[in-house]
């Protein structure tokens, strides 16, 4: 099914549920990993992903089709994840970066985190980056999105995304090369 066909289903009240079920089946994994790359914890990801799908269902009528549907989904997921981190950090009286680090440290006990050593190292490196740099890097590396698509998701310019990605790469190389 193409994106246009899926949108047709989602915008028609008679076929909206069928379209939404298809969207859920298609995107649950990709969105899970994207959210997870921001919040670094399965339980947090689970909550954010659920909210994300609920928001998509309620707001699909307002999607004007100016961008691709999946970039709109990633944008919702990114905003939901960042908003969740801010709330949770406030609730736990922590800084957002400290919360991300704490979440990462608990990953060893996480049954859904079965990454290789290299992936774990990369995950640790990402938590040491400012969240926008980490998000750009993760979307490009893990989700295999183009920088132009990431610019749409983050609602920023392509030049800005290129700069963020360059900085992220440079810092990750430096972190991974540390003994």
């Amino acid at each position: 099914m193409t994106e246009v066909e899926l949108l047709t289903f989602l915008k028609n009240p008679k076929t909206k549920i069928r379209g939404f079920t298809y969207l859920f089946d298609t995107y649950n994994e990709r969105l899970y990993h994207h959210i997870r790359s921001i919040v670094h914890n399965h339980t947090y990801t689970d909550d954010v992903l659920q909210n994300c799908f609920i928001k998509v269902y309620h707001n699909i009528e307002s999607f004007e089709g100016k961008s691709a549907l999946y970039t709109w989904l990633y944008r919702i997921a990114t905003n939901e994840a960042l908003s969740f981190l801010r709330k949770e950090a406030k609730h736990q009286q922590l800084d957002v970066d400290d919360l991300r680090m704490a979440a990462l440290n608990n990953q060893e006990a996480d049954p859904y985190f079965d990454a290789s050593e290299a992936e774990k190292k990369l995950e640790v490196a990402l938590t040491q980056l400012p969240h926008r740099q980490a998000t750009v890097f993760s979307l490009h590396y893990n989700q295999e999105l183009k920088l132009r698509e990431i610019a749409e998701i983050l609602d920023t310019s392509l030049g800005n995304v290129k700069a963020l990605h360059h900085l992220a790469q440079k810092k990750i190389k430096k972190i991974l090369n540390q003994p």
Binding site: M1, T2, E3, V4, L6, T26, Y27, N28, E29, R30, Y32, H33, A68, Y70, Y112, D114, Y141, N142, Q143, E144
Partner: peptide
């Protein structure tokens, strides 16, 4: 545009 389903990461438990 075709929809992309595959993720680079490992599949999630059913």
């Amino acid at each position: 545009m075709k929809l992309r389903k595959k993720s680079r990461k490992q599949p999630l438990p059913k």
